[in-house]
């Protein structure tokens, strides 16, 4: 294996495997690349941003890669080479202006697009729609997702259903270490943090079952925190709600405490949940922050009692 032939073979193998890989990446697997296969307005705009920024970058990157190959080939040291050799040529203001300038222009273009996109896609901003949005409250637990429907009065675990073409207002918190709530085909993720209710507005434009996951590591069974996000017609959604209401048990406060214990979970449905459970979960952690009462006030209150 130490012969030059073997060495050459190795180089061939290297290039070949690269090509196979590129082929792999561009053909067979695209249907699986769910991030590039959006089913909602947010994910669609994010996909577009990815493509635009890739193209903008490629404007510089591709010529650089070609230039690298050409320079390395042309100026390699060999006998009878025709290319110039100028060992002391080390400065050219004109050239340097060009390659400070080009990246600056590209970055300005990209920067403008990014800033616009950042404001347009700010996740707490409601979506433009004539339809009244539906609110779903999401809690990250160790290691499962609890979904509460304050308007419908039901709850579910590791499964969330909503009607298509209706904006969804997700309110996200955690009763666990920080997680991140992500449904790639509908849009980007949002951290789930204790003591806070984050808002994320998404919408599904098509019926379908989409993968959802917890994206930020939270411990042992973190890898079991997948859920199905099911976008259905309004009728199917209503039907599902009433089915859950009639056939599933209610989630009690004790039941919640049991549910919150660290373990993975199957899909579960609840016909009801304790009133204000989500708000309680949020304020449980937020309550330790200053409430504007001074210590002496509190002492006084306690004394008076």
């Amino acid at each position: 294996m130490k012969t030059p032939q073997a060495y050459k073979a190795l180089r061939w193998f290297a290039s070949l495997s690269m090509m196979v890989l590129v082929l792999f990446a561009t053909t067979g697997c695209t249907k699986n690349m769910i991030v590039l296969d959006p089913k909602g307005p947010i994910a669609e705009q994010q996909r577009d941003l990815m493509l635009i920024s890739t193209i903008l970058c490629a404007v510089v990157i591709v010529p650089v890669l070609i230039l690298t190959a050409v320079i390395v080939w042309r100026y390699r040291d060999k006998k009878g080479r025709k290319a110039k050799y100028k060992p002391n040529w080390e400065h050219s203001t004109k050239l340097e202006i060009i390659w400070w300038g080009i990246p600056i222009i590209i970055i300005i273009a990209l920067g403008v697009i990014t800033v616009k996109g950042t404001y347009a896609l700010e996740p707490s901003k409601p979506l433009k729609s004539d339809v009244k949005p539906i609110t779903i409250q999401v809690t990250s637990l160790d290691w499962k997702w609890l979904f509460q429907y304050p308007e419908q009065g039901i709850a579910s675990v590791n499964y969330v259903q909503f009607p298509e073409n209706v904006p969804i207002r997700f309110e996200i918190t955690a009763d666990s270490p920080m997680n991140s709530f992500w449904i790639p085909q509908l849009g980007g993720q949002m951290y789930a943090m204790s003591g806070m209710a984050m808002t994320l507005h998404l919408q599904a434009d098509e019926k379908g079952e989409y993968m959802g996951s917890g994206a930020n590591f939270t411990g042992r069974e973190f890898a079991k925190m997948y859920f199905t996000a099911n976008a259905t017609s309004q009728e199917a959604f209503d039907q599902w709600v009433s089915e859950v209401k009639t056939s599933s048990p209610a989630l009690t406060l004790d039941g919640y405490k049991e549910l919150a214990k660290p373990a993975a979970s199957d899909v579960r449905m609840f016909s009801a949940f304790p009133k204000g459970l989500f708000e309680m979960t949020v304020t449980k952690y937020a309550s330790s922050h200053n409430h504007g009462l001074s210590w002496k006030d509190i002492n006084k209150i306690q004394l008076e009692e």
Binding site: S288, H289, N290, H291, L293, S294, W295, K296, I298
Partner: peptide, 9 residues
Amino acid sequence: KGNTNGGPG
């Protein structure tokens, strides 16, 4: 500074 947890400030 403000997070006094109901304790003294």
